[in-house]
Amino acid sequence: MLPFTIEKATSIQGAIAAASSGRRFIAGGTTLIDLMREEVERPEHLVDINTLPLSDIRIEGSDLVIGALARMADVAAHPDVQRLHPLVAESLIEGASPQLRNMASIGGNLLQRARCPYFRMLDASCNKRSPGSGCAAINGLNAGHAIFGTSNHCVATHPSDIAVVLVALEATMQVRGPRGERSFPVEELFRLPGDTPHLEHTLLPGELILTVRVPGSPYSRRARYLKVRDRASYEFALVSAAAALDVGGGVIRQARLAVGGVGTRPWRLGAVEKALIGKTPDRKVFETAARLAIEGARPLSGNHYKLELLPRTIVRALEMTGEAA
């Protein structure tokens, strides 16, 4: 670990000012400290934002508003979240381990770095860690890597579970920077790697995430998150799916579907959603629609199984929306 300085932010404005002059925010530290220990991340100055008043979890109308510093464990355990937005709680519980969930903030979760083994090995080429050095994963071991949104420069997946849900539910986020506040869909936070895989998000220098807003919706109660993996906890998704249906009069009126473990960012599947609308929510319909999910997929040497697993995960997640969590 390289030496660094750390100062405590006493106000949001102060934190933003510090970040504008090149300091990095640190909240739960579950990604940053880990990567600093391995010298993958090498910030020289950190600003600790943990004491800023951004930990609120509240309901506004039917929307859920989560402060960026709310801990994963606290959001998951919040009675209003469990009652009104069980999908959010479900995805949080599927993420990480209890120890990590107690520390990790929602804002930090969205900004966590890619989970590619080569990214973490300083002696391996990785365009995300050191631009222009190449991508060891493309011709290396890539069973866990993406089939959507990849480029010739990077094939790493975005690891967050809650991000998949937020993208499915069309959540928005409020950020503040040196030039004021702005709000935009969570989906727009994530960049595709293209030829700049080291740039992962769209926040401007100094911008701080304040809140994430999950809109209330007719289907927020009929929504499930299915995370498929080889062990029951503390593993990233091979494939995951956040599915939400608004069913009325025996037909699907609206559908929301985003998947994880397959994209270089949380991957919304609009074509599958469209194929579901107006249909009866049964397995046959789900299967037909899910087949559209793998259109445009670009499997790598080690992850062809995701072409099989992805539609199956979607079908099962859609089925689960009709079952109690």
């Binding site: 381990s97 989970r115 083994p117 080569y118 973490r120 090995m121 391996a124 060891a136 011709n139 290396g140 071991l141 080889d230 062990r231 029951a232 906890s233 503390y234 593993e235 990233f236």
Partner: peptide, 30 residues
């Protein structure tokens, strides 16, 4: 039976999953 496997990169013999998040062992929930 279900989880443990150290995977080597055939290009340089490097164990790619030399990390407790990537080398799977049963956890309590399993």
């Amino acid at each position: 039976a279900l989880m443990e496997r150290t995977v080597l990169d055939s290009r340089d013999g490097r164990p790619v999953n030399a990390h407790m998040a990537d080398y799977l062992l049963p956890v309590n929930l399993d």
